[in-house]
Amino acid sequence: MADTIRVTLKLYATLGKYLPAELRRSNEAVLEVPASAVLGDLIGQFSVPPPSCFLVLVNGVFLPPSQRATATFVDGDVVAIWPPVAGG
């Protein structure tokens, strides 16, 4: 269907637990969603609570919180999400 796109959703750290067991090792799922889908639609598929999505990268680029309710995706996008994390 022309109006659906494939987006790879990666859920890391404590968010990995929201993925079905068979996807947890890779931490990722390939989703087919309407072209109008926003972040909430992607994480909604696995019941990830929106407040726990702290760091959101689309193809490695930070998606600011102000754009998360409205930004849409294109076919082939990779969306990676973490709760608050840090290291050094």
Binding site: K10, Y12, A13, T14, N27, F54, L55, L57, G60, V61, V78, A80, W82, P83, P84, V85, A86, G87, G88
Partner: peptide, 22 residues
């Protein structure tokens, strides 16, 4: 959330996938 949960559970190693993605 970082010092209370992220670092104890995943350590600094949580950055491996983060830094690779960016």
């Amino acid at each position: 959330a970082v010092t209370g949960e992220g670092l104890p559970k995943f350590g600094t190693q949580v950055l491996m996938n983060v830094i690779n993605e960016v």
